[in-house]
Computed example of a mutant assay.
Amino acid sequence: MVDKSMATGVRIKKRRSKEGNYLAVGTSRPEVQLWDVQQQKRLRNMTSHSARVGSLCCNHYLLSSGSRSGHIHHHNVRVAEHHVATLSGHSQEVCGLRWSPDGRHLASGGNDNLVNVWPSAALEAGWVPLQTFTQHQGAVKALAWCPWQSNILATGGGTSDRHIHIWNVCSGACMNAVDAHSQVCSILWSSHHKELISGHGFAHNQLVIWKYSTMVKVAELKGHTAQVLSLAMSPDGATVALAAADETLHMWRCFELDPAWRREREKASAIKSSHIHQSIC
């Protein structure tokens, strides 16, 4: 998607839109690029940051980018004057960004060990965090919103912290915290089961499946030689894909297939078979 000459010496962070048609790329030039996935064509460059862009997250037409300067910029990708807001709540690099499923809140994690929760629209006093969580003792890159409770946020800390926290962002309460015994690089909730999975770096480079809300360990998946950088869930909610720092991709069957998805798939398969039979006849 990005040609080699442009990628040389550039720190790239990618984020796909929910529709899957567009790809946002943050670089250390610094700029945010928008690409058309199907046409493999760069649509525009958005230059508003003063330092490298290491985190991205989209909420419909609003693209949020986090910078090494500690600032978060909101970009309205539909208009020429794309930079519509600046959020200043971190004193060091913004390591992670995640919009809630309902689009009401944006969570940001920083190298300053802070987690901020921002409203989707400016308050009368301006852009200020609704909540700031200070309990982590390491950089916060891992952020994930619960898919069935929009006010529940999971966060994970870096090597000097190693903890996963579960927050109620409305009340500001920490509902649970667990020592994962490894750097927490990524978190992903199951879409069909009350469980979540975390990807880790130093010292064990493992995956761990946790039961929500007790945070009891369900399973530990080992065998990786470097830190787990990112996780993605398959559409059926059963398989987790991960990218590791050893430049490998792995697929893990972590969860049972959702019965509703299985029924839909069997129904679609039956319809397809029926059409093929009719065509043969």
Rank of each mutant, 00 (worst) to 15 (best):
H204W: 14
N205R: 00
G156P: 09
N205E: 12
V178P: 08
K141Y: 05
L143D: 13
I164M: 11
C170M: 13
R162Q: 15
A203R: 12
C170R: 13
C170W: 07
A177S: 15
R162W: 00
Q206G: 03
S150Y: 08
G156I: 07
H193P: 04
M175K: 08
S182I: 02
K141W: 11
H163N: 14
I187L: 15
N205S: 01
N176S: 12
A177Q: 13
G156T: 11
L143E: 05
G199A: 07
T134R: 14
S171V: 03
L207R: 00
T159E: 14
V140R: 02
T132C: 14
H165W: 10
H204N: 15
W148L: 01
Q131W: 11
Q149I: 05
V128M: 03
A180C: 15
E195A: 13
L196G: 07
Q131E: 10
H136G: 09
I164R: 02
I197V: 15
I152K: 05
G158K: 09
S186D: 14
Q149H: 14
N168S: 06
F133E: 10
V169K: 04
A142F: 03
G138L: 07
W127S: 13
D179L: 05
K141P: 04
A139M: 05
H181E: 15
Q206M: 11
P147W: 03
F133Y: 14
V140H: 12
Q149C: 07
C174E: 10
Q149G: 09
H136M: 10
L153K: 08
A203I: 06
S198F: 14
E195G: 09
C170S: 13
S186Q: 08
T132E: 05
G201Y: 11
S198M: 12
A139I: 02
V140C: 10
G126A: 08
S191L: 11
H165F: 07
W148H: 06
I164S: 02
I152A: 01
M175P: 00
A125N: 12
H204T: 14
P129F: 06
Q183N: 15
I197T: 12
S171R: 10
L143H: 09
